[in-house]
Nucleic acid binder design. Structure first.
Lengths: 234, 234
DNA sequence: CCTACACAATATGTATACAAAGTGTGCGCA
DNA sequence: TGCGCACACTTTGTATACATATTGTGTAGG
């Protein structure tokens, strides 16, 4: 039962896009990719079509595929939309989860914790992605899942910075996020909709703070006296 | 500038699925379709992949494509999700619409009114679809649009009954829906978010009532005495 | 020197032939 | 007669060759 090269290609491209190994907005060359994954252009194009359907890439008529970009407009929309979808999904997950899904969620959370301990940012990001994707599956809502998936693509890409803590405060934030995951699992297991929505929104606030700090970091320290001199110098 | 057969195929399949000319759950034969639209299997398969990405069809590994079904679980989710997405989109549309989009919306609404006057159920359904799709475009939210699109697919299919009025009461309902469209346009033009959300929810309630009546119609009139006799007879 | 057009090079889109997987039928055997 | 296996048939998946569109470059003309 070896996995088909096509499926490998699909999953690897998803992975590389989420980890920004392939940058947002980057052009994808069909022949280069079909060469890399040892499939012909026909199935490769089907993979690209599928990735386009999932929101990972955009297809341009007669001008190939490129990775979905993350411009300012996108980000604005992202911050506007995320809490609505995340909280809706959380509520539905608490109502509709199966025991099997709950087990898988715990398993993924354990793996996530391992990655945190190992300080492996990429693995952390991917397992966090899987964690939230699973909550989407639990919600069992075919209409909302596509929205969640698209949000998670950009969340995971934006959140890379989250898992590469520079300052100790950042490291603490990851710890806290991890605890929130545990609390979410508990609330989902209890079927406590209100609790899981509450924790989810806290989780979002934490994540948003980090991301906004990345987008709009603290200004570099200035030496005012020095600045004044430069002004005169010119 | 003649349209490519591929694009014709894509649009026509969408149309036929929405009008249930191709029934929910129906199997799609690649060779039959590629024959019908005069394209080879390669571009046809790309069309199917794209339709799958949009939620019109589902692709089964090594077992072809079938039109997205509308089972009980789907419908339950549909009724649960529609008001959330519709009202969110309405609010965003009022905030983000461009004047050009507003013009197009008015134009589509005029066409819809024409179809109502002409009592052309299929055209009504398709123009109603386009009307709400446009509101999605106005909302300018790449994360929510896929959810709206999927809801509209099922709404349009389910709502066919809406536009084939049997009783005078049904005909009145269509008139009312038409007026609500006008009210939505006015509210969107004014940028009155609260108003458009309010009207949108009323619009949903109207539509939902009709659809639920279809799903769970009034029971057939019984002659109780007669029923009793039958019971004894057995 | 800049612009515009033409042609070459590259990349995408389509058709067709072939391979592989799935499905149904019929025959043999218990 | 019922079950199971094998083989043929149908359908889907992949590779490759060819057609078409886009892009870059070079040259001629203003």
């Amino acid at each position: 039962m070896k996995p088909s090269p096509k499926l490998t290609c699909l999953k690897d491209l998803r992975h590389r896009i989420l980890t920004m190994d392939i940058a947002p907005g980057a052009d994808l060359d069909e022949v280069a990719l079909s060469d890399r994954y040892a499939v012909s252009r026909t199935p490769l194009r089907e993979v690209l079509q599928r990735l386009a359907g999932e929101g990972y890439v955009v297809l341009l008529e007669n001008r190939g595929a490129k990775v979905a970009s993350m411009d300012l407009g996108t980000m604005r929309t992202f911050f506007q939309t995320a809490p609505l979808i995340y909280s809706s999904m959380a509520r539905l997950a608490a109502e509709n989860r199966t025991v099997q899904q709950l087990g898988e969620l715990k398993s993924v959370q354990a793996e996530f914790t391992d990655a945190v301990s190992a300080s492996d940012p990429t693995t952390m990001a991917m397992r966090n992605h899987r964690f939230h994707e699973l909550i989407g599956e639990m919600a069992d809502n075919a209409y909302l899942v596509p929205s969640l998936s698209r949000l998670l693509i950009d969340h995971t890409r934006l959140g890379q910075v989250f898992y590469r803590p520079k300052a100790p405060a950042e490291s603490m934030a990851v710890q806290k996020a991890c605890q929130q995951h545990d609390a979410m699992i508990a609330a989902i297991e209890d079927g406590d909709s209100d609790a899981v929505v509450d924790i989810t929104l806290q989780h979002w606030d934490l994540s948003r703070d980090r991301m906004e700090r990345f987008v709009r970091p603290d200004p570099l320290p200035l030496d005012v006296a020095d600045l004044r001199e430069r002004t005169h110098a010119v």
